[in-house]
Design a binder for these strands. Structure first.
Lengths: 330, 330
DNA sequence: TTGTACGCGTTATCAC
DNA sequence: GTGATAACGCGTACAA
């Protein structure tokens, strides 16, 4: 039975100083003599001391935690969407080496308000909001300022976004310049502003190019892409390109096209959005608008940790086009 | 400025009892008069009291946390693999309503030992190991018993697994009974026991069926499936079926087959393993061996929470075959 | 069954 | 620059 974890007292004793001094040395406060600090840190290393986070939290009122709040209908949907994996990875990257932990909350919209209330009370270092509707985000932000929303859900709440409109524009231009003329769009869910921005980008660029737009609604899922494509084909059996609001939707589109006897990209080109892991896995591999989800998250969390997020804070990342076989010229 | 969070003292005062009694009532200890308990709980509700987890942890020595330790080379790989999303979802499902938090550690093999040492010291309620090599798992288990490994990495460490061998057998029989004769296998990484079990199941069933086995190594990733398929084709250009050790590998196999001018399933059938979200997204959709990852995780964590995991604990889940277009008879 | 008193490991406010 | 000392909010022997 090894003796229990060393505490601050053990460190102080070993270094021949008081608890207070040991604490100050460990926390890097300036008012500590260099040699004393060295002795303390040496004792820390020798004893293998790790500060007790519970005690630290109790005494300081701060908790070394970043909250990630995801509004999603159920856990299965959460687990199946590669987007969240990227967010998690980006968040953890920002936490690396800081000793800060991630706390993950996945909640359907109807209980989100209670979850957010709890989070607001918990005194964490910051909260990243994903898919949190505007009203809830605003309410949360009113009583808790260290927040960033992934995507511009509410203009007054700090947000980190990618240039969705321009991403959609890149997709349309790419297709148009390859000679595609009947370019349709499959939207995301109506409450999602990112989808809205992509939609707007699509419409604007189609107008610029003098092409007639046509679109249908979707839901950021495979089935939405499949069904949406069938609807579009009914309307225009001769369409020659589809831009989807996300990769999952695009995979559904490809399946529907193949199921109706069309070849991708020979008959119809398909472009997705996200450039997630899925894009590389489909057959044919999917051309997709790259969105730097990891970076958007990492940098947001980093600013959160350093207390640099204030009202009006926001950042925007460029999108780019990753061309794969699904849109190659025939 | 709303006054700060109510504490146990506030609750006690409101209920007209002492702090200790309030504490006991809240923690469900038997030695509390029914009417007193009711008064306390009423006060809790009225004040919106939430116990401070830091204070609770400090006083009790327990931390309301389940650790999830994943050994993976980097965060990007972690974020891109749908398997981990399912594990996370399964774990969170077990935590729902318990107030217990998940702590996520993703680490490459070379720093895993340090991470595990920290976790062992942290006093959490339990730890779920994913992809933790046998030696590390054993060492961890020696000083910290509340562990479950996802997959039978070390026989002495409690584990939750699926019947991998039988899953592979299902795949082979399905293909053989559809008239496929040259059925190849693409393995996972050599250190992974789940892959080993699948491989063994493949070999055994091929022998039973009187078919000559052929296989190549892989790495649970797309590229491994692509390259592996090219190697197999070089050896046997006429092969008519491939069983992959995981879905990602299977998507690579499909791509390689199509790239070499073959049709799936007409010329070559493909079966994956996991039945992850990917399987439904590919073109053609992928027949895959279903592994109930969420359930494996949820039940393991549930037993962890209830302190029911002891030496020799393990559970095994059946696998099944989800048939999709990639293996349909021609 | 209930209340008193102490301790959990740390930070923060004072004096010195 | 350093050291006592008082919180921080809660659990739990122990006494009543």
């Amino acid at each position: 039975m090894p003796r229990s974890r060393p505490t601050l007292i053990d460190v102080a004793r070993a270094a021949g100083v008081s608890r207070s001094t040991a604490s100050r040395a460990i926390n890097g406060q300036p008012s500590v003599a260099p040699d004393v600090r060295a002795r303390v840190l040496q004792a820390v290393a020798a004893l293998g001391y790790h500060p007790d986070s519970a005690a630290r939290a109790l005494a300081s009122g701060r908790v070394d935690v970043i909250d990630l709040v995801v509004v999603e209908q159920d856990l299965a949907t959460f687990g199946a969407n590669p987007f969240y994996g990227r967010v998690t990875a980006g968040l953890l990257a920002a936490l690396d080496g800081t000793g800060v932990q991630m706390r993950l909350h996945v909640t359907p919209a109807r209980t989100a308000s209670r979850v957010l209330d709890d989070v607001a009370q918990s005194g964490s270092l910051g909260t990243l909001l994903v898919n949190v509707p505007a009203a809830l985000a605003r309410r949360f932000h009113r009583r808790y300022r260290r927040v960033v929303s992934l995507g511009r859900f509410a203009p007054t709440v700090p947000y980190s976004e990618s240039d969705n409109a321009r991403g959609a524009a890149l997709a349309v231009r790419h297709l148009a310049s390859a000679g595609r003329r009947t370019i349709a769009f499959i939207d995301g869910p109506p409450w999602n502003p990112c989808a809205g921005q992509r939609h707007a980008g699509y419409l604007g660029t189609m107008a610029e190019a003098g092409l007639r737009p046509m679109w249908t609604h979707g839901n950021f899922r495979r089935q939405g892409g499949y069904d949406g494509t069938l609807r579009l084909l009914q309307q225009r059996p001769d369409l020659d390109a589809i831009v989807a609001a996300c990769d999952m939707t695009a995979t559904g589109a490809i399946q529907a096209l193949v199921a109706t006897g069309r070849r991708v990209p020979d008959d119809v080109a398909v472009v997705g959005f996200d450039d997630s892991v899925l894009a590389a896995l489909t057959t044919p591999p999917l051309t997709s608008v790259r969105q730097p989800v990891e970076e958007m998250t990492t940098l947001a969390v980093r600013d959160l940790l350093q207390g640099r997020v204030h009202d009006g804070w926001h950042q925007s990342f460029p999108t780019s086009l990753t061309v794969r076989a699904s849109s190659r010229p025939t």
